[in-house]
Amino acid sequence: MDRVRPLVAAVIAAVSAGLAAAPQPAAAYSMRPADAIAYLNRDGDERLDWSEIDYAARRAFARLDRKGDGRIPFADLADRLNRRSFDAVNPDKDGTLEIDEWMALVRRRFDAADQSHDGRLTRKELATPAGKALLDLLLE
């Protein structure tokens, strides 16, 4: 029994250390801008234009619309969006976002991230807080 206790303690310590070091789920914005561009860029120009963001946003909406009813409740967006931002794009105050409200939100975030106002997002622009907020909507 005396030899078992140190062994059990060592196993518990090893498992605890392993759990602490295990990769934890991260917010979408933890994806590096270069990786986000590689993932979302459809024309290979190393920048994201509105058509690419629009495509990604519609796919994200379809993923998030778990019931398939064309609505995403706030609870399903709480890890991506704060209540104030949600309310700002939910004028009908029904507690859900429909596709037009979702796309308005994505467009606002795209425009905020587009610091050069050229309609394309670069790695540098995606690395800003506004760019990260946009990616947070689109990526899992």
Rank of each mutant, 00 (worst) to 15 (best):
P23L: 05
T122Q: 05
D76T: 06
V8D: 09
A57T: 06
M103K: 07
G119K: 05
L81K: 00
R80N: 03
A36L: 05
R32H: 14
A28N: 01
E98Y: 04
L19Q: 12
G119R: 03
D114I: 09
A27S: 12
E52A: 00
D111H: 10
A13G: 13
P73C: 02
R3P: 14
R32Y: 11
A88L: 13
A36G: 04
E52P: 03
E52K: 00
I53T: 08
D100C: 01
G119H: 09
E98N: 11
G131S: 06
K67M: 13
P129I: 09
S85C: 04
V106C: 06
L81R: 00
D76V: 03
I99F: 02
G68R: 07
S51F: 07
R84D: 13
K93H: 08
N82F: 03
S116R: 14
A57L: 05
A14V: 14
R59L: 08
N41C: 10
W50E: 03
L137K: 01
S30E: 13
P129E: 10
G44M: 01
V15G: 09
D65C: 09
I53H: 01
A75L: 09
E52I: 02
S30G: 00
L97M: 14
A26T: 11
T128E: 08
R5F: 13
Y29G: 11
W50A: 05
I12K: 11
D92V: 06
W102I: 02
A13L: 15
Y55P: 02
A9F: 15
A38V: 06
S51M: 05
N90K: 06
G18S: 13
T128I: 08
H117G: 12
S116T: 15
A9Q: 15
V11H: 07
T122Y: 06
D92I: 05
A36R: 01
M103G: 03
D2Q: 12
A10W: 13
A10I: 13
I37L: 12
T122H: 04
R66A: 14
D2F: 13
D118E: 14
A75V: 08
M1L: 14
V8P: 09
K93A: 12
R107E: 11
L48R: 02
A36T: 08
R83M: 12
Y55V: 10
G95V: 07
L48Q: 05
R63H: 11
A9G: 11
D92S: 13
S30R: 11
A10S: 15
Y29Q: 12
I72M: 03
A130N: 14
D45C: 08
E101P: 01
D118W: 06
A21M: 12
D114Y: 07
A17F: 14
A20P: 03
K93M: 08
A28V: 02
R80Y: 07
R58E: 12
P73N: 03
G68P: 05
D49W: 00
L134Y: 07
R59M: 10
R66W: 05
A22I: 01
D2M: 12
A17L: 15
E98L: 06
